[in-house]
Design a protein around this nucleic acid. Sequence first.
DNA 1: GAAACGTGGCA
DNA 2: TTGCCAAGTTT
Length: 390
Amino acid sequence: MAPLDQTRKASPQAAPGDIGSADTSKAGSRDIASRLLAWYDAHHRDLPWRVSPGAFARGVRADPYRVWMSEVMLQQTTVEAVKAYFRNFVEKWPTVEALAAAPAEEVMKAWAGLGYYSRARNLKACADLVALRGGRFPATEAGLRELPGIGAYTAAAIAAIAFDQPAAVVDGNVERVMTRLYSIETPLSEAKPQIRALVEKLVPQARPGDFAQAMMDLGATICTPKRPRCMLCPVREDCSAILSGDPERFPVRLPKDDKPLRRGAAFVAERADGAILLRKRPEKGLLGGMTEVPTTGWTARVDGATTADAAPFRADWRRAGQIGHVFTHFALELDVFHARVTGDAPSGHFWSLAHEISGEALPTVMKKAIEAAIPGATKKPSSYSAKRPA
DNA sequence: GAAACGTGGCA
DNA sequence: TTGCCAAGTTT
């Protein structure tokens, strides 16, 4: 472990006259990094993909495969949501070669529910490429940046955490911390280059990976979007925003466009044995490559008069309810229709047996639709009986 | 550079 | 309930 007390004592505070001004000098930067690392040693979160600072100091290094996997899953996604998916993925596919050997279909199924499904396609594509080059991830930011699904943030994060490179890791947490530290009034989208430049000044040559993770942990646990716990912050003496009395004001954001509402209908066709009719969505676009029940387009309002025409085939469709779902750029209301049907699956469709449904690559919105028609149908078999009375 | 791209938790 | 927003990338 790092010598916490010495680190703290070795960190001179800013000169009295400098308090309130942004100290971006090299000396000030070292102080911030040192204080942050000492705080991280004591207060870092234990996460499934993380090697503790203590183990790292003894020479234990993070597995680039696991770092990559976690970083991709964490893109725009909460830590709590990622944990179970990460554990499942690394158990199913412990190495990048194992993931490369897996059918893409299985990867999509395992990703179902986590969202932003192009990540899953890119994850598989990236694994295939890395496996081809011997299973070794590039050890530099530039090399990583060329792989599918790895952008500026993820390349820097992997380079720093897995390969000990002094990369400037800038995610939403870091943006929040930095805009507060320096009271950056520029709206976020414009301020990114400035934030990156400031982070580059802060990154220490020693322990850059821990520094990156410390910044993100600080943002996640202390420098939170709402009600930041400034009294516990290791760099409160360096923070400009705290002096303003309203650190929550940062980062400054531009107002958002409001979301349009789209409507449509979903059709849950159920066979006597409980199988449900499904189909695969196109590889690109919304929910690309995922599985769905047949639906109308999601732009037109569908009323009772057009229901039979909108369905993929004629059946005794009965309205089972309505579900709502909010995507990133629009809200959706789907009228859900249910019918009991017999016969073969229409072209482009397939039957999913009752016990297989929970394992299909069904996005959450599709599970909602199925649940509206057949409660319990998408739950794991242990909590759902296929012998449900018809 | 703007728009597309999921989901769940929390106030 | 509605809105915010979380370890971003691709086109």
